[in-house]
Design a protein around this nucleic acid. Structure first.
Lengths: 394, 394
DNA sequence: CTGTGTTTCTTCGGGACCCGAAGAAACGCA
DNA sequence: TGCGTTTCTTCGGGTCCCGAAGAAACACAG
């Protein structure tokens, strides 16, 4: 219930309340006006007024009489929900081993999902172009109206400056330094676009629909080819100066470790990423190539594979422990390809956190694996897109 | 310009705007209505109305005609400022080698300052009691009205649960586990009281009046007997779950270091605190007892002393580097007794940060020494007290 | 000294907003 | 069928912010 700092006055208050109602509806799904009044604290009168206004503009619909079983006395309410509007938003995950796409309407309903292989490591432009193709194609395939697309959010493996949308650094997309992918995507597709760090988006996704629902302070750690973190602090995504927060992969984990691509020595990524885990594993299983291979071996009870996962978890937990000491979050959510073997990973991270934090801190921090799997980033992108569009609120 | 989430409606909007005006006045000191209107975005009409209301209730006063030189055409404005109200707040620093006290009125003017030795390490109740005595005495000495005291904020070296005000843990105040000092202080003095972590308060102080003015993301690191951090993220104090954020002193800095009081090994505190620095120094200068001794030696160009400070700075910088990777703040402000030798400390911390972070991150982070010296905590406490009281705003 | 332009601040009226009270509607239950 | 209960709308009142217009105070030019 905060008023945008530029606006002021009565109409701003109205917008603010409108946003509150929409937020409440997104959380609840389907509620009566009376419940809405109770959950927002606004009077029934105001809710009625807002609802009829929003209903007239097509943002919400009145579905049916409330059938919440029987036994409840009193007149049943009429249920309200966000209308399956024509307006669309899209989320794209450009950071994984395949390009993922999800299209949703403003009510949060996913209308379409698609993906395409992304065996184009380092070729950023190629990936971006393929993503645009995929988006175009999917819109046609699912018979959606192209003119209704309002906003696209793209997640990439790299740091994106929050201010000007430029890529500050990306290990994966070579030559993207100072490049503005959002601008390029806008020109290519004509869609308003925003680019964010993939781990940041995944954090948003997990908080909205995954393991971090309702949590105020949470750290999401993605362990895939690289390692990155997304921070939700005081209920909001924390990006840091120039969006550079969460670069946990380059915390030094071993004084005398290998040289990392970043120029330092012993970065966490050189020890605990999926790539380095597979490299270790190949000493015993020369055929192990993918995260899937590793997970299969773990599932079959292979000791070496389990050890590799545990080692990665211990190293990550060691780094996270420092983070826990400093931030004291409520929960750590683990994601990325390494979570194909969730149990040993979570156990290892937990024990490491307990070992390296003060007891009163470590014992209060939950550790959990993603519940959205490889979709946390796309879904987070969709979430952010929906939010951005409906906070302009007409 | 955010509305408190419990209230709603027109009066909430009014309160919100009132708070905006008060905040603007606190920042600006003395401005005309017209300037106020421009800086807040509220219309001149509204400003006029708010000003006359606040003026009637005695919160602000109209001082004089605007004498901002000449050469300016047009009717001069009438200057407004926060009235040197009778209402008082107090800040107390219980974490240092002496107990410090500052009393201010709601306009932010410091009315009285005092301090008393605190050579009572570990005796928490004794310290708290002495602080109450000091407060009582100072009120009398400066001829202040005891009944006008509205709020007291106390900083202690320990973690305070934000919710219930209880001490979660304090290395310094033995037996304070689960104790609620604010309650005790209220009963002893009859003043509404709040207890916070000292580094958190110091961070607020530096941000309001010190090296971090106007900064949105800042990390304050206090290096004294212990080491602690205070985090200001997105412009607001970040406390973490149960207020446990900022426990940087117990990040493991050396795998095979000494056992720390917290039960782990090689904590930063065992390496870089003033106590451990002095211990190292005594190998060469057996007489060195206090931070002052160390600083004097550094000033006289003593190599061993400079080395000790540099070593501490390097270790702290090493730990901060991980924090920079994760949070990407704008500035690191160093405080505590170790900053009696600011230059070698800042240099060491800087070089360590540059060494252990990725270049695009480390090179953008400023490192600075406190500009408030040993007063950052008290002044931060006063700041928080003033804020808390005037946001209730009558 | 007198106009003119400029800036500041107040007054007045209009419009927007939220809320409480009262009433109509829909349901369960006796 | 009547009563209690809950939901939702309507109506009137009060509060709030804003734009326009006007009064006031000053610099400056003639």
């Amino acid at each position: 219930m905060s008023i945008g700092s530029q606006q002021t006055g009565l109409t701003a208050l109205r917008s603010s309340n409108r946003a509150v109602v929409i937020q409440a509806l997104r959380r609840a799904g389907e509620v009566s006006r009376a419940e809405l009044s109770r959950s927002t604290g606004l009077s029934g009168t105001t809710i009625s007024s807002l609802v009829s206004e929003l209903s007239a503009s097509g943002v919400i619909t009145e579905t049916a009489r409330d059938d919440r079983g029987s036994g409840r006395t009193g007149r049943p309410g009429r249920l309200i929900r966000l209308a399956p509007t024509n307006e669309l938003v899209a989320g794209i995950d450009l950071a994984g081993s395949e390009i993922q796409l999800a299209i949703a309407d403003l009510s949060g309903r996913i209308c379409a999902q698609a993906s395409t292989p992304a065996d184009i490591d380092g070729a950023g432009m190629e990936a971006l172009s393929r993503a645009a193709d995929l988006l175009d194609r999917t819109i046609v395939d699912f018979d959606l109206d192209r003119t209704q697309m309002r906003y696209v959010v793209i997640g990439i493996a790299g740091i994106v400056d929050t201010m000007d949308g430029r890529v500050v650094v990306s290990d994966r997309m070579h030559g993207w330094q100072d490049f503005n992918p959002a601008e390029w995507f806008l020109e290519r597709t004509s869609f308003a676009t925003r680019v964010e760090n993939d781990a940041d988006l995944a954090a948003l996704g997990e908080r909205a629909r995954g393991a971090g629902r309702g949590v105020m302070d949470m750290v999401f750690v993605k362990i895939s080819a690289g390692i990155g973190a997304g921070l939700v602090l005081s209920g909001q995504l924390y990006r840091g100066r120039h969006g550079a927060a969460g670069e946990i992969g380059h915390v030094q984990a071993r004084e005398d470790g290998e040289i990392c691509s970043c120029g330092n020595r012993g970065c966490l990524e050189t020890i605990a990423s999926v790539n380095s885990a597979l490299q270790s594993l190949r000493a015993v299983h020369p055929g192990a190539r993918t995260a899937r291979d590793l997970a299969d071996l773990v599932e079959s009870g292979d000791r070496a594979a389990m050890r590799v996962v545990a080692d990665a978890g211990l190293a990550v937990g060691r780094a996270i422990a420092d983070l826990c000491n400093t931030l004291a979050p409520e929960i750590i959510v683990l994601g990325g390809e390494m979570t194909m073997s969730p149990t040993p990973l979570v156990d290892a991270v937990s024990s490491s956190i307990l070992r390296y934090t003060r007891p009163h801190i470590g014992s209060r921090i939950k550790v959990a694996a993603t519940t959205l799997g490889t979709q946390s980033c796309v879904l987070g992108a969709v979430e952010l897109a929906t939010d951005s569009v409906s906070s302009f609120a007409d």
